[in-house]
Design a protein around this nucleic acid. Structure first.
Lengths: 189, 189
DNA sequence: ATCCTGATGTGACATTTGTCACAAAATCAA
DNA sequence: TTGATTTTGTGACAAATGTCACATCAGGAT
């Protein structure tokens, strides 16, 4: 059995084919077109998404200034949702939309919890995944605070070399917390 | 039974007194004096710490510029460690030291995992705690990137009103990613 | 009390980055 | 192809924040 999600879970919890098939049966497969929204501010957030194909961005809009801050990209092998709204069953404060045509696997909170209760392995997977996520977010925070615009840019290139040529520069600038113009000037020098 | 740690765990997983006593037996109580290090760069990180009393700071030192960035404070009811080194059994890249005389409960990774395996409740607690932590870190990141120095300062005051008069301003400046002087000028206006 | 150290406030100036305006280039749809 | 739209580059200037230097102030140790 060969599946992106299986490989992903097995980086933490090895699974038999039966176990994985059972897990997979709790997900819903979805195709979404470029520019379509997976999550929109104000709506309830029913799902957490695992990306099989394509690329998405998650951002918050500042109504006062009209600007947006992209806090996450998600390409193949990544999870994405409005975590807070999903987990607390509240409504979205973020927007998530597709930068390309996408294929995702969607999991409801009910099924997520069901899997956690039924399989210790899955709860463990969730626990470790969240812990790792925390660690990498902490590193990003550190980079954002300590690093200059140039440091951040170089760090991004090193970490996601493929994304740089896949995503419009203005989005990358937003992700890095610099203006589009500053980013443009950075990769001249 | 009344205990800071019990109350803390019960925000996620309710426990009988026996269950809590069993959990508690895996922790080691420690007292540490002001200015002493709980974790020092280069050393192995044996424990994760739950703070019963006192206040600590965790920071990374930039050897090039000689500056340090404080990425976390921890007072009563908070967890602190070098998460990456603790979890991967590698050596610390961060320093953690006491801003006041402290009392903490220390948990080894072995005992943490043992509790998770033996009690689904505890694994669930870890999972949810990490997820919440991720969410709040994401909010901090957003504030750091989108907000001006003043926004960040006001946000800090609103979130941790008690810490502001408990911690030297230079440390708070470091946590907020601004210079000591800029912070000083902020709370004039 | 008095010294000493660390914490804080403040002015002058440098630096980084943002903002605005517009041109050039690339992409997409008909 | 061709026109329209989006993306990217660049100059001039403004704004925010950092840096350095030094003055004050507060608290702890003797």
């Amino acid at each position: 059995m060969n599946h992106l999600l299986k490989d992903h879970i097995e980086t933490i919890s090895p699974l038999s084919d039966e176990e994985f098939a059972y897990i997979l049966s709790h997900f819903v497969f979805k195709k979404i077109k470029k520019h379509a929204f997976l999550v929109q501010e104000g709506d309830p957030v029913k799902y957490e998404y695992f990306v099989l194909k394509g690329c998405l961005k998650a951002y918050v809009a500042d109504n006062a200034t009209g600007k947006e801050f992209i806090f996450q990209f998600a390409a193949e092998d990544w999870w994405i949702t409005d975590r807070e709204a999903f987990f607390k069953r509240s409504t979205a404060t973020v927007n998530i939309d597709c930068l390309e045509d996408c294929e995702v696997l969607a999991l409801t909170l009910e099924n997520r919890e069901k899997l956690g209760v039924e399989m210790w392995k899955y709860e463990h997977f969730l626990s470790v995944k969240a812990y790792w996520g925390y660690i990498s977010l902490q590193k990003r925070l550190q980079m954002m605070i300590m690093g200059s615009a140039k440091d951040r840019y170089e760090n991004f290139i090193a970490q996601y070399p493929n994304l740089f040529n896949r995503i419009p520069k203005s989005f990358i600038a937003s992700y890095l917390g610099v203006s589009r113009e500053t980013l443009s000037r950075l990769y001249k020098s």
